[in-house]
Write a protein that binds this DNA or RNA. Structure first.
Lengths: 238, 238
DNA sequence: ACAATAGTGTCTGTAAGACAGTATTGG
DNA sequence: CCAATACTGTCTTACAGACACTATTGT
């Protein structure tokens, strides 16, 4: 450190541990799934052998920022480079990690189902949401997971988020199915299509032929950087 | 520390600095204001003499959690015990603090205008928003402030947040004025009143007499713990 | 009586949902 | 021609905004 002693003294507090965790969603066979990893069996580690969200310590040498750290962890587990990634919130207190006062910065990510089941070295698993919710995860990761689901369900009502869960090109019926899977209720076809097309966030990408019946128009996101916000939610007087 | 050496070795990373900052809003004379504090003039401190958001290091001895830390800082500056307080997000990178890799957990708070201008020891000032935005604040606090304003304006469209900016009991015309101040546009009286009363989140508290004209009904929040979310925003086809 | 403010009633346009209809493919 | 799926058109209804109206106070 090249700082003078006065400056470094002003920083001479006991510092909390700082981690980043990522809740990564995808859709497999019309089911919303989340990626979990197994913690090492080493008894000196906290929560040995338990399932947890992907994450870990911020590396001040390697990570330029929190976002970069989250992207690194996501890429290490999934190999996906351009996901939808947003900050979920932060959780920090004296008790959540047995090693000491710790705070985590949680992100949540939406990706299209990766071809390969495993990409990293640590055991990882795509688990349907209902099963993941029944597991007792490491740390306070059940709290984080619940927050992520709440955020996702909430935003799906009035944004284009589900489009990031599908590989391109996708059709409107496919997209509607994803909305219905996440929201766990049926949507009206006509209203749904009007919404999507009026929002003007999709580009046509030629017809896509399915197993039976009439082929559907394929679409791509015009912008993969941000989600589109619709003027209203589904079902006003819910 | 009562941990074994193996465990402490697994935590032997260089730890970032961890701070909490709070963006505190109130309304004074029909203007939205934010609380700023002056950083010490000591040349060994970063950004000496500059204005900044209230905040500082997490104290792992004193603060049980991030929220408790934010509440402590808010209370120290304003004396307010039961504000509206929500997490805004976190910002962390290698460059934002000259003392090293640092991450801050930002909160934003809404309070009724305190009677006393000053409550703490450090110089503090309620500054109208437009003036605050023109200042060059310490650290990345301009970014935090902008994020807070965006969040506030966004949520005011479809929540009861402005009610937390007024002392109770307040009248519907007063509340409407606050909405208009924050949104910086006029709202229709009839639609506004329907919205507020239909949402069923206010309790009548007897008539309140103003300077001129007919007295208005006073109201209190039925629940001060959380904001009410309206089924729709103002002005659908904006 | 009048100014000033609080509160209500009525009309209208918009847009989402319901649902039935048409279109296009493969077998 | 039929099954299966994609897509469109029309009707209805709910509700927010516009705006004019009534109500209640002080001077």
């Amino acid at each position: 450190m090249s700082l003078s002693r006065e400056v470094s003294r002003s920083v001479d507090f006991e510092r909390p541990l700082v981690t980043v965790d990522v809740v990564i969603f995808t859709v497999v066979d019309d089911r919303l799934c989340v990626l979990l990893v197994r913690r090492p069996d080493d008894e000196d580690e906290p929560f040995p052998g338990r399932w947890a969200l992907p994450g870990g310590f911020v590396d001040v040498q390697q990570d330029a920022s929190l976002l970069a750290c989250a992207q690194r962890k996501l890429r290490a587990k999934t190999g996906v480079a351009s996901p939808y990634l947003e900050q979920l919130g932060s959780w920090g207190d004296a008790k959540r990690d047995p090693r000491g006062w710790s705070s985590t910065h949680a992100y949540f990510a939406l990706i299209a189902r990766p071809a390969s089941q495993e990409a990293g070295r640590t055991p990882a698993e795509w688990l349907p949401l209902d099963q993941a919710l029944r597991r007792r995860l490491a740390f306070d990761h059940n709290v984080l997971l619940n927050a992520a689901i709440e955020r996702l369900r909430g935003k799906v009502e009035y944004t284009s988020l589900p489009a990031f869960l599908l590989p391109e090109p996708f059709t409107l019926p496919q997209l509607q199915r994803v909305y219905e899977v996440v929201l766990d209720r049926a949507l009206d076809k006509s209203a749904f299509r009007k919404r999507m097309l009026d929002a003007d966030y999709l580009d046509e990408a030629g017809p896509v032929t399915g197993d039976h019946g009439r082929p559907a128009m394929g679409y791509r996101l015009r912008e993969r950087e941000r989600a589109t916000v619709f003027p209203r939610g589904f079902k006003s007087g819910e």
